[in-house]
Design a binder for these strands. Structure first.
Lengths: 135, 135
DNA sequence: TTTATAAGTCTACAAATGTAAACTATAAGT
DNA sequence: ACTTATAGTTTACATTTGTAGACTTATAAA
């Protein structure tokens, strides 16, 4: 899913399901994308199977095939997995330091971390290079 | 920076500076990219100003213009900022639960979270839609 | 019933990205 | 000095992405 497609998905995720009219209206409030552009994006999301529709000839309802949480988790996962395992903890810490989290989120996160601490390794090796790169 | 370009950067970041020969060799160990492809990627990274070189006519040394930590932080930041503010805490928690972090990382992260807790809001509103979308 | 509005489809086109062959020039070895 | 291996440059081409006009058709209004 590209960044523009992601924007479209966010409104559909929030509405649960939506017509192109609704999407065009809401997206139009925060971008200057033409209705045509938004229609193209919807079509592409359908082709990529991120959206289904109820088949109506008009005022068709589009529904996500993937939950927002899942999409978010997958995306984050990919981003993090593409980064140096040794450095990623630091990056996460830095970013979290400037991300607004609710009290509940923070407590939940702390809880998760506490659980992981016992089994956590002393250090994590850099994985930017294949193991045998020095041969 | 695209994902393939990112792979190139990772080896240069790790080596500090590198010749195309080194990059081609190391990348060749983990991908089947042709030397040509890797050269193209290096050129594009130079054009995008992510790399400089020492100007030698041959065996030129390429150096990153951005630190790995900064690039990682920026990338993560962008990813997170493109997501629903209300849901992102949950996604981060889920992903962290399956990411290997060192003991030190965990402690540092917990420390950061503890510091943020007092000022943390009770809840974070969804920002997927513009504020006035219901008008 | 005719008509206009707009939902949905097709077509378009530039820029970015993945992928790589061909060409040029340079340094090292003979 | 000549050859050769190869580093660096050019050119190439398909696919994806950003962006949107044009066209077709279905429905609500007149």
């Amino acid at each position: 899913m590209t960044t523009s497609e992601w924007e479209i998905m966010r409104v559909i995720w929030t509405l649960g399901e939506a017509t192109s009219r609704q999407i065009i209206r809401v997206i139009g409030l925060k971008t200057d994308w033409s209705p045509s552009t938004i229609k193209t994006l919807i079509t592409r999301l359908k082709n990529k199977n991120y959206l289904t529709d109820n088949g109506a000839a008009r005022d068709r309802l589009y529904t996500p095939t993937i939950a927002e949480q899942d999409a978010m988790t997958d995306t984050l996962h990919q981003t993090i997995n593409s980064m140096c395992a040794m450095c990623v903890g630091d990056a996460i810490t830095t970013v979290i330091a400037s991300t607004t989290l609710s009290q509940h989120d923070i407590l939940h996160l702390q809880d998760t971390l506490t659980q992981r601490l016992p089994a956590a390794p002393e250090t994590v090796a850099c994985d930017c290079m294949p193991d045998n790169w020095e041969d």
